[in-house]
Design a protein around this nucleic acid. Structure first.
Length: 431
RNA sequence: UCCCCGGUAGCUCAGCGGUAGAGUAGGUGGCUGUUAACCACUUGGUCGUAGGUUCGAAUCCUACCCGGGGAGCCA
């Protein structure tokens, strides 16, 4: 017997095949059961009749609890009445396991309940669609960099002495009397790798012990960080634009059905075309001031500021040349305005805020040393990093893209916690 | 750390001083193809915890715990 999956049913019309999955929903009348089977690739309705199964088996089938594991064999039929266009006339229903009463219904639930049942919540239609979207984004990112000659060079998860303070870092014991920290960013390592391979990227989990309880924060999230040797800020901005455009197009081309399940406003994504607007921080501040927004030059943007700026555009906006005080020590100063750093943040449309942060790095040894001193950082910890400026230093830059925030925006959902299979958040580490 | 909102049936919520409710899930029966199916009946509760006010508290007060949203923070 041919075993297949629900997404491939179109290839089997008129044939008898076996599907293996779980009972998603069922409805019954006197002589018919409508069994909705899900298998991770889709949902299909299977028809079981009293006539075929008989007085004994028919009620058993109709009494199966939701999420019972079943394999169903039958003939595939195209049927306009069925959602998805195909149905199966069940010939055999084999019960692999009878589920206990399933806690998650097709009605609404609260976030606490759903998060505590994340291991089961993942089976729900929207969550399946969201994980497929995430997968699409990840694969597109990897292909994007591969096709452009970037080498995937991953950064370590354990890192030594904290760069600046330890309040935002997760500390772990590292053998005897030594502390290690979970990485916040692979960037410094990518700078080393870029000097070895030219163009590189890392893609992995990062950890931040920030006590943030907002829809944009996770304590563990995935970040993709490309880094390029012989690159300036404009090269970095071009790359962010190309990457985001490629992702948007891939999602529209390959995940339209999932976007529809997520009830995403697809037209908003279709409007996104290069070039994206590029404005300086200073211009952004002027825009804020021209509304009734209170903002002074020199501060970093908060979430409401980012929303105000991005709401003027129907595509991502690149904000560049921030005050150097709000940016990291390794950011190169703007040669034309010493107050500014050559950094860029990309703000997603529709109020989703920052999804990319990056810029051109300081490549001069002495300038970098004085920055480290200004920031009161221990030079000892950066000895290896400073070596990169001793041995063949070149202009270089890159950025970090937050995966969950990007998926959140593309999917048009409320909270990043749904964009990662098992979210880690403040005071929540189960399941 | 701060501000706002909430905690009542497995789940989602109503009730806001006078005997604990609905929808849904579960159970039983019915139904000519249903689409979050529908119809009838039905099981199910230390009203977050501990004190207090009151003749009487799910309801008012205090403290604590837990959750949600936001601020700060997010090189």
């Amino acid at each position: 017997m041919t075993v297949t999956t629900i997404e491939r049913l179109a290839d089997h019309v008129g044939q008898t095949v076996t599907l293996r999955g779980w009972l998603y929903n069922r409805r019954s009348s006197k002589k018919l059961h409508f069994l909705q089977l899900r298998d991770g690739t889709g949902i299909v309705q299977c028809i079981a009749t009293l006539e075929h199964f008989g007085e004994e088996r028919f009620p058993e089938i109709g009494g199966l609890p939701y999420e019972s594991a079943v394999t169903i064999t039958g003939e595939v039929r195209a049927d306009a009445r069925a959602p998805g266009g195909f149905e199966m006339d069940a010939d055999k229903v084999d019960v692999v396991s009878v589920s206990e009463e399933y806690p998650i219904s097709h009605k609404e639930h609260g976030p606490d309940f759903l998060l505590s049942n994340r291991h089961l919540w993942l089976r729900s239609r929207k969550q399946v669609a969201l994980m497929k979207l995430r997968d699409e984004v990840i694969r597109t990112i990897r292909n994007f960099f591969h096709e452009r000659g970037f080498l995937n060079v991953d950064a370590p998860i354990f890192t030594p002495n904290a760069c600046e303070g330890t309040t935002n870092l997760f500390e772990v014991d590292y053998f005897d009397e030594e502390k290690a920290y979970l990485t916040q960013s692979g960037q410094l390592y990518m700078e080393a790798a870029a000097m070895a391979f030219g163009k590189v990227y890392c893609f992995g989990p990062t950890f931040r012990a920030e006590k943030s309880k907002t829809r944009r924060h996770l304590t563990e999230f995935w970040m993709c960080e490309p880094e390029m040797a012989y690159a300036n800020l404009d090269d970095v901005m071009d790359l962010t634009e190309d990457l985001l455009q490629t992702i948007v197009e891939a999602v529209l081309a390959n995940r339209r059905a999932d976007l529809e399940i997520l009830e995403r406003d697809i037209s908003a994504l279709e409007k996104i075309q290069k070039p994206y607007p590029r404005i300086t921080y200073t211009e952004a501040v002027e825009k804020l001031k021209s509304t009734d927004h209170k903002f002074e030059w020199g501060g970093d943007f908060g979430a409401p500021d980012e929303t105000a700026i991005s709401s003027e555009y129907d595509r991502p906006v690149l904000v560049h040349r921030y005050p150097q005080e709000v940016k990291a020590f390794y950011m190169r100063r703007d040669p034309e305005d010493d107050r500014c750093a050559l950094g860029v943040d990309v703000l997603a449309p529709e109020g989703y805020g920052e999804i990319i942060g990056g810029g051109e790095r300081e490549s001069d040894l002495e300038v970098l040393r004085s920055r480290i001193a200004e920031h009161k950082l221990p030079e000892e910890a950066f000895k290896w990093y400073l070596d990169l400026r001793r041995f063949g230093t070149v202009p270089h830059g890159g950025f970090g893209l937050g995966l969950e925030r990007t998926v959140c925006w593309l999917a048009g959902i409320e909270h990043v916690r749904e964009c990662i299979p098992f979210p880690r958040m403040l005071h929540r580490i189960y399941p």
